[in-house]
Design a protein around this nucleic acid. Structure first.
Lengths: 250, 250
DNA sequence: CGCCCTTTTGAGGCATTTCAAACATTGTGG
DNA sequence: CCACAATGTTTGAAATGCCTCAAAAGGGCG
């Protein structure tokens, strides 16, 4: 099992060598000399560090270049909800556009490199050339809204098993889109974070891992996951029951 | 009870007379002669008619001028999820920006008037003057993302009672922001739609109405709702009952 | 090696769903 | 205008999936 298939390659400073360039919103802008389009790579952040916090004044949008992160927010009544996990190429911080302050916090799940995009809606002197960047940002925001819709469907109408299977399939697709293996990868978040994101108890998540492994659908070792049957996962995600070993596959 | 306080005034063609102008994304653009900014009011749609459907090619963004609507989508596995209710001033259809086709369907809940905004990301010759409209669209999109986050929190971590109270409070705030009564209004959607939006059984929604009325927190007559104690609602919405979340992260 | 965090496993409780049926309301055609 | 059908709403009782509580095992790291 070659490590470079299972894990994301570390991003270099050169977008042309980045495996995520195809889906990266920042790709194509790094060579620009326009200040309004400047993309600067920051020094990498270590694990469990905030890229920005809920309430911080919006100054930049960020693009994750390597590593992974989670975004979450705290409600006024003290609840915390993880609303997404992020991988290389993802745009971070758009929710701050609403009123100039981030509505979510984003924390790295592992060492992460970032680009930042200066962003000010109020710039009336905005260069027409940045229109393309704005369009990309809007497309990304629309994709995010679509993802939130699917998350709502998952939380509201799917069983624990279906939620968990959907989660694995989502990760699988995202890894695949970034040139990594669709069937074998490492989770970058603890069970607790998966539980919060899926709105399940940690114990339930743990049991889902166990049951899928017992059913021969996946292999799990700590955070390493290997998908043995994509079809079975798809079936479960569509709210079918976990296929019992006693029955013939179908 | 004056009807014009409880119900939205019918919108005229003149934005200056529109009570929702303050929060309307289209406000201020109707007088423009720029084709790219043109806002056209269409003939009103009757109840239960689609403004656009999931899968339709994106041509316009819409602004609801009067009436109300719901947006929903059908998942590949046959589930349907209502993701939002809309009132005058709301922007509709932004999710279509992701790939040029709407990801949701929007259906009127009562007779509704609309403005439509021609929208093409690909226009490289985009007039710089429309930058302000784009900025408003982005702000609206960011607000929508924030709303989706709160919806996810509600679906994932709140009890049936808290969900229902939150729903009433949300409506109350939105009516208030539009110059209508915060404490007395008419629901424009059936119980079934409330149930789907909150991911509860219709029976549970019905029982919530009954229990809040029995507790003296609200008065209900069919779709007419009168909030007697806002504080009680706030308390219930903050989970003053049950369902403690355990899976939090940090 | 020992502490702490994460993960796993088991048993019971309970909020909400499901099922079933009556009731009210709206719309429609005669 | 009324009868009828279709839709929407309410109420009760039983079923169940997930959470809660409890405790132990596993790994990482000083």
């Amino acid at each position: 099992m070659p490590a470079n298939i299972i894990d994301f390659p570390k991003s270099s400073g050169d977008c042309e060598l980045c495996p995520s360039a195809r889906i990266c919103i920042a790709h194509g802008y790094s060579g620009t000399t326009e200040p309004s389009q400047a993309l600067r790579c920051q020094t990498p952040l270590k694990r469990n560090q905030h890229i920005f916090r809920q309430g911080d004044h919006l100054e930049y949008l960020y693009v994750l270049r390597s590593g992974s992160a989670k975004s979450y927010f705290d409600s006024s009544d003290g609840l915390e909800q993880i609303v997404g996990f992020h991988y290389p190429g993802d745009l971070l911080g758009f929710d701050g556009v609403a009123d100039g302050a981030y509505r979510t916090s984003v924390m790295t799940l592992e060492t992460a490199a970032l680009c930042r995009i200066p962003f000010k809606l109020e710039d009336e002197g905005e260069s027409p050339r940045s229109t393309r960047l704005w369009a990309d940002v809007m497309r990304s925001a629309a994709h995010q809204i679509d993802a939130e819709h699917n998350h709502a469907l998952l939380l509201g109408q799917k069983s624990a098993a279906a939620r968990f299977a959907s989660f694995l399939l989502d990760l699988s697709a995202r890894f695949g889109a970034r040139g990594c293996s669709r069937s074998e990868f490492n989770l970058s978040m603890p069970r607790q974070d998966i539980a919060n994101y899926l709105s399940l108890a940690v114990e339930t998540v743990s049991r889902q891992f166990g049951e899928l492994q017992a059913a021969g659908v996946i292999e799990v070792d700590r955070r390493h996951v290997k998908i043995l049957s994509l079809d079975a996962l798809l079936n479960i995600a569509a709210d079918g029951a976990v296929a019992r070993p006693r029955a013939t596959s179908g």
